[in-house]
Amino acid sequence: MAEHFGLKYLRKEVLPTAFCPGCYNGILMNALFQAFMELGIEDLKRFVFVSGIGCSSWIPSPFIKADSLHTLHGRAIPVATGVKLANPELNVIVIGGDGDLASIGGNHLLHAARRNMDLLVIMINNQVYGMTRGQAAPTTPHGMITPTTPYGNPERPMDVASIIAGTNANYVARWCISQYIPLKNSIKDALSRYSRGFRFIEVYAPCVTYVVRREGKTPGEKLKELMKKCIRIETWKNMSREEREKHVATGVFKAEDKPGFIETYNKYIAQALGEK
């Protein structure tokens, strides 16, 4: 029997993954692996994955067959920064949740983006804290009922991709998990055409257990719903306020190829100290 393209990037002995049946984290894994495959990456020896705490942080650790650092809640980006600065030859990818990267680790996200640090960060926006049983996250929709917003979420969700697009980050995109091909291509771009500086991909993928099933939907039904709900940012911009609220704006928010932090740092040092 033919083997799934993703398996060569996985530690087979620990499969199936620990995620709930239907969890969209696994779809992101497919897109990531297909991107690797299409880029001709045979193994992940020169890749380092860094994640924090949460369901999405389990994607690399222990499932992906690569070096991985499963760090503290919110601290994946600084650890990844340390790895990358200490050995710029390594490809460093951060994968984590919206709680992890945008709430408790939000400051690091902002500053790594500001520095244009040479990292690829993939954030799973599942709208909740999945691992701790579905509490509200900074990305939870207004009015949504969760264990910590039993009367409806009084806060409005954070548009993480737009915020990061407002920094010096080189590449920013948001895709729904239902947009497999553009998501996969975006990951490819962030590893090839745009291979330096800070690259951020937000993946809109509602938690199937604490969002989708609470809505009374199956993971498959929700996927089909997302296929309609997620539209290109250009279309979204031309919508009325009311219509916008019902849709998710997706696409590439920003794509530049400025020198990243490391190149800039080295340049200044070479200028000041001269080539030795």
């Binding site: 600084p78 650890v79 340390g82 790895v83 990358k84 600065l85 200490a86 050995n87 400051n107 690091h108």
Partner: peptide
């Protein structure tokens, strides 16, 4: 390599990453 971190949470975690990178 020297880096000024955004806070001490970042500082300690950056040196952890750098240590693992050798």
């Amino acid at each position: 390599v020297f880096i000024q971190a955004e806070d001490e949470l970042a500082a300690i975690n950056m040196i952890i990453g750098a240590s693992w990178a050798g």
